[in-house]
Simulated scan of single mutants.
Amino acid sequence: MDNMFVVGLLGVLALVVGGCVCVVWAARGGPRWVRVVASVTLAAGELLRQSERSRRRSMRGRDGGGD
């Protein structure tokens, strides 16, 4: 069970690093597939930022005003 968790984390790490490499490569004029992967990576990052903002707003609303 522990090994599967480590393998899963390494897989996620590889996807993140690969996505970042594609973003940099696409900025320098890489092939079409690199630009597609970079667009998907940037869209996923934006979705994560939006969900984090909305989660923070909902947590702030539960605090009772944050005084």
Rank of each mutant, 00 (worst) to 15 (best):
G11Y: 13
G11I: 11
G11C: 13
G11T: 09
V12H: 08
L13E: 14
L13V: 15
L13Y: 12
L13T: 14
A14T: 10
A14H: 14
A14N: 13
L15K: 14
V17Y: 12
G18S: 09
G19H: 05
G19E: 02
G19L: 02
C20K: 15
V21F: 04
V21M: 08
V21K: 02
V23G: 01
V24P: 08
V24D: 01
W25P: 01
A26F: 07
A26H: 03
A26W: 04
A26T: 06
A27D: 14
A27E: 14
A27C: 15
A27T: 15
A27I: 15
R28E: 05
G29P: 02
G29H: 08
G30K: 01
G30M: 04
P31V: 02
P31A: 03
P31R: 04
R32C: 02
R32V: 00
W33C: 03
V34P: 00
V34Y: 00
R35W: 05
R35D: 06
R35Y: 05
R35S: 10
R35Q: 11
R35V: 02
V37N: 07
V37I: 15
A38I: 03
A38R: 00
A38P: 00
A38L: 03
A38G: 04
S39M: 14
S39G: 14
S39Q: 13
S39H: 13
V40R: 02
T41S: 08
T41M: 05
T41W: 00
